[in-house]
Simulated scan of single mutants.
Amino acid sequence: MALRVAASASRLSSRPQNPSFLSLPHPNTLKFHNPPSHQPRLDALPSLSQRRHVRAITEATALEPDEELKDWKIKMLYDGDCPLCMREVNMLRERNKSYGTIKFVDIGSDDYSPEDNQGLHYETVMGRIHAILSDGTVVTDVEAFRRLYEHVGLGWVYAITKYEPIGKIADSVYGFWAKYRLQITGRPPIEEILEARRKKGELCKDSNACKM
């Protein structure tokens, strides 16, 4: 009998105990962590004086409209009535907001003055792209585009045209476009445009009202 009891006790003690139950930590050893708070710390928020300082810097660095630029490096004479031309002009305007180096002059404006632009008349500038450097140098064709792009951080676009024969080829391609751009964009011949401007000029002179 004693042997059977001892054997039974031995079998009970040798049974594997439930590991999942035994592995649970004692309640007194458990540590609960609060979820992180997503609310910003008050000391991390900028103060009112700091916000005013940032706004003052932003306003101080805002560029003037290109028509009023005092320290321009190059002046672009463009045809504001040319829809395809205006795509490029608008792109350069957007880039120029960060540089302030290009002054844009619409040759079709009633305020356009050849005297203020190295004596370049409307008909001359309508023939091909013209740009004027701050020292008075006039550049045309692909060189004008290259100089303009350089002043807004895009010099790499036309960099290859500095080398021959690439430069001459590029000028030839542009010359073809310039010759036929009025037809390509659905506008009347240059003679009709000049006649319309002449009549408009006479109307302005006689009545001080520039309406076509």
Rank of each mutant, 00 (worst) to 15 (best):
residue 1 M to E: 14
residue 1 M to I: 08
residue 2 A to G: 13
residue 5 V to W: 07
residue 5 V to H: 09
residue 5 V to N: 10
residue 7 A to C: 05
residue 13 S to H: 10
residue 16 P to V: 09
residue 18 N to L: 08
residue 19 P to K: 12
residue 24 L to Q: 15
residue 25 P to Q: 06
residue 25 P to E: 09
residue 25 P to W: 05
residue 27 P to T: 09
residue 29 T to R: 09
residue 36 P to Y: 05
residue 37 S to H: 03
residue 38 H to E: 08
residue 38 H to S: 11
residue 39 Q to L: 13
residue 41 R to S: 14
residue 46 P to F: 10
residue 47 S to I: 01
residue 47 S to E: 06
residue 49 S to V: 05
residue 52 R to T: 08
residue 54 V to S: 11
residue 54 V to Q: 11
residue 54 V to T: 10
residue 57 I to N: 04
residue 58 T to P: 00
residue 59 E to P: 00
residue 60 A to V: 01
residue 60 A to S: 15
residue 64 E to A: 15
residue 66 D to S: 15
residue 68 E to L: 14
residue 68 E to P: 00
residue 69 L to M: 08
residue 69 L to D: 03
residue 71 D to H: 13
residue 73 K to V: 05
residue 73 K to T: 07
residue 74 I to G: 04
residue 74 I to C: 03
residue 76 M to F: 12
residue 76 M to G: 00
residue 77 L to M: 04
residue 79 D to I: 08
residue 83 P to S: 11
residue 87 R to K: 15
residue 88 E to R: 06
residue 92 L to K: 04
residue 94 E to F: 11
residue 95 R to W: 10
residue 96 N to M: 05
residue 97 K to D: 06
residue 97 K to H: 06
residue 99 Y to Q: 01
residue 102 I to Y: 01
residue 104 F to C: 07
residue 106 D to R: 07
residue 108 G to S: 11
residue 109 S to M: 08
residue 110 D to M: 05
residue 111 D to T: 14
residue 112 Y to W: 09
residue 112 Y to R: 07
residue 114 P to H: 06
residue 115 E to K: 14
residue 117 N to C: 03
residue 117 N to L: 03
residue 118 Q to P: 01
residue 119 G to H: 03
residue 120 L to G: 01
residue 122 Y to R: 12
residue 122 Y to P: 00
residue 122 Y to G: 00
residue 125 V to A: 12
residue 125 V to S: 04
residue 125 V to D: 09
residue 126 M to A: 09
residue 127 G to T: 10
residue 127 G to F: 04
residue 128 R to E: 11
residue 129 I to K: 01
residue 129 I to M: 13
residue 131 A to Q: 02
residue 133 L to F: 02
residue 133 L to N: 10
residue 134 S to A: 15
residue 137 T to A: 11
residue 137 T to I: 07
residue 138 V to H: 02
residue 139 V to R: 05
residue 140 T to Y: 00
residue 140 T to L: 05
residue 140 T to Q: 13
residue 141 D to H: 12
residue 142 V to G: 01
residue 142 V to Q: 05
residue 143 E to V: 09
residue 148 L to C: 04
residue 151 H to I: 00
residue 151 H to S: 15
residue 153 G to M: 07
residue 155 G to L: 07
residue 160 I to Y: 11
residue 160 I to S: 09
residue 160 I to L: 14
residue 163 Y to C: 05
residue 166 I to S: 06
residue 168 K to T: 15
residue 172 S to I: 04
residue 172 S to R: 13
residue 173 V to D: 03
residue 175 G to C: 06
residue 177 W to Q: 02
residue 182 L to I: 02
residue 183 Q to E: 13
residue 184 I to L: 15
residue 184 I to H: 03
residue 189 P to S: 05
residue 192 E to T: 11
residue 192 E to R: 14
residue 192 E to H: 12
residue 195 E to R: 10
residue 196 A to C: 01
residue 196 A to T: 12
residue 197 R to L: 08
residue 197 R to G: 04
residue 197 R to W: 02
residue 199 K to M: 14
residue 201 G to I: 02
residue 202 E to F: 02
residue 205 K to Q: 13
residue 205 K to W: 02
residue 207 S to A: 05
residue 208 N to P: 00
residue 211 K to M: 09
